[in-house]
Nucleic acid binder design. Sequence first.
DNA 1: GCAAGGTC
Length: 866
Amino acid sequence: MAPSKVLMVAEKPSIALSIATVLSRGQMSTRRGSTDVHEFDGQFCGFHAHFKVTSVIGHIFSVDFPSPYQDWMVTNPVDLFQAPIVKTESNPKAHIRRHLSQEARGCAHLVLWLDCDREGENICFEVIECTGFHVNEARRRVYRARFSSVTEKDILKAMDNLVDPNRDEASAVDARQEIDLKVGVAFTRFQTSYFQGKYGNLDSRVISYGPCQTPTLGFCVQRYLQITTFKPEKFWVVRPFIIQSGYELQLEWERNKLFDLDVAVMFQKLVMEDGIVEVIDISEKQECKSRPSGLNTVNFLKVASSALGFGPQMAMQLAERLYIQGFISYPRTESTAYPSSFDFKGTLGAQVKNPMWGNYVQQLLDNGYLKPRSGTDAGDHPPITPMRLATEDMLGNDAWRMYQYVCQHFIGTVSPDCKYVRTKVEFSIGGELFHCTGQHVTVKGFTSIMPWLSVNEKNLPQFTKGEKIEVLKVELHEGNTSPPDYLSESELISLMEKNGIGTDASISAHINNICERNYVQVQAGRKLVPTALGISLIRGYQCIDPDLCLPDIRSFIEQQITLVAKGQADCLRVVQHVLQQFKQKFIYFVRKIENMDTLFEAQFSPLAESGRVLSKCGKCLRYMKYISTQPSRLYCSTCEEVYDLPQKGTIKLYKELTCPLDNFELLIFSMAGPEGKSFPFCPYCYNSPPFEGIDTLFSAVKTGSSGKAGKGAGMPCFLCPHPTCRHSLIAQGVCACPECNGTLVLDPVSAPKWRLYCNMCNCLVFLPQGAHRISTTRERCPECDSTIIEVDFNKKSTPLKDGATLHTGCILCDELLHSLVEVKHGKSFFKRMGARGRGRGSGRGYKGRGRGSGRSDDPKMSFRDF
DNA sequence: GCAAGGTC
């Protein structure tokens, strides 16, 4: 009998790999696909079976409105509360649905290895849908593996204890998705349309609302209001001084401070008149400062912001990179407790060669390290720990500092606690009580690896009980109470965690959101200062319906969907009930919007005076206004600059890309009429052509005689040269200039015509036209060492089909100009043709050169002859 | 153009 086939699906490729490695004891074969598939034979429920382990990449689907509801103009936001919703593939290009459906064919069993939280349970059902399995089918069964860590022990235990997936928990997530979508989009569309239609200088394209982002902003504004409404009060402190063993010592008052001057003066007089200090008690206490527990995401983000100066977004990006490169463990975790099976010895052992803390680690290994303090085990991933040794050279400064902290924190968790003795000496002067304290560290413990947490040594001179000392002087210190500082990012993260706003994976996104929308600005010390827009919004909610910006709004939704998760309420009814409440709030909000508008009126100027905000200025990074009255222009009110625009057409923002030369946001111009041509351009370059030869293009565009849109010619990624960047189809279209080693970037103003220019020496390079895709290869030209690019003329097939042709060559020197790649069996190989050397430096003539220098071998393949 | 949640 043929072995039955078992399909196993994990939440991400790395977990699929771990599961397959454990279950096959490393004896599996791997097939590349949308996500890799690991195959092996083994036993399943007592039978011989063939296993396939693959994964999704997070959620397969996300919810949205069907297309008729996508149009802001035709849909009334209030109707969104009853609108249908559709699930679409989150990342259609990854083809996860197709992948799962194909892999499930012929499988008799499906085992779900998604993360064991609500989101994971929800993804289980997304997987079930894609595979065509059914939960209660007897013939093809669905199993759920429950595991709290991806360790051999847990994986094997989960395999022996397979359960059913939990529909209720999954439904709770469906409920949350629908509520978040409808509430967020309805409020956002209404606010945006209302205020953008009224004011011209709102510094954000979208005036968004969301049950996480709005309370997050609320925290920042609340602190701002505390500061602005703060009334300082004067206070007074009696400060006696004595000299003991040659040291001058200031004594602390038991009453701390008084707010009444007369009373304070009375005490000062009393103390001065007595003039003798009596030591009434000396006590010593052993104090212990505990070593940290394991590092979870929230604490990691707090340290990154407060100690390393990295914002949450940046910190997560760095952590993500360290994780992918294998330097640290998975950075998104709630847990501060380690699994019992955690390999502390191995993890420490990996650090003994580190020049900074290697010796310390060796001592820990020799003398015995401690088990970390018990933290909380959220059952997701272990705390963030170093996985392998790194040096600064391997990582670069920023990532290195991050890595360094992760290492020091981990070593700290297995180090002894810090112990110190606290001495308190109490004094009496004329019956008034004072004291002073000293600290002496006996065991440094973990503070020697985390020196910033050290206990300050404070020595006290010797005193004996009953001793009498003369008072040197008595000061009356006058102080003012001071307002709190603006909310720091780190404090905000704590508040969000405490109030259940966002998750370890999404907290950074929410903070980033309110910064990007210009509701707050990050200032020195990573303090969050709300802008006029942010303040007006929150104050507006506060006077119309404070619930809208309180953190309870999130906990209310959470509490409602928890009823669904526990099976105590019907999903549909909960969603209806919650949406009904929000709809009432929405209707009331719309009716009372004038209350919020009063605040906007005081801050912003009417549309008529100022035009409409369109795109960001590259100089001041504030929004510029589009003046639609003829001739239409862009105006930056901060820089007081006007930029001309192409006329007689529509101008829109182009994919929120910025020009690499000057940081101005790119725009797209479309000529009037249904067949109107369009082209993207940079408003700054359009007014100040950055290089020779570009005028011709502009004059053609300006007179309307050209301006062809290159269909399929996507714009390059101007944001980064990273090969996996998905900002556009030809994200890789960046190579090095051999003249000056600068970066060659696809010319933003010539998207229809493929050209590269160097933003350092301004040289211009022409590319073959009619290409479907242009990308860089890893090959370097042996002549001039510039990057070899690859030009794909095959419009239809990605990946390339057999027989399709690619053209590769160095665009800068003639050496490999006519290299050819043929695609066979999905793999490409190079076939060099006609390599005739001209030597390095011979490529210098390309600047501004266009036609005429092509080769005769194959005109289509010449990069210059077009 | 919009939310929040996974993950890359």
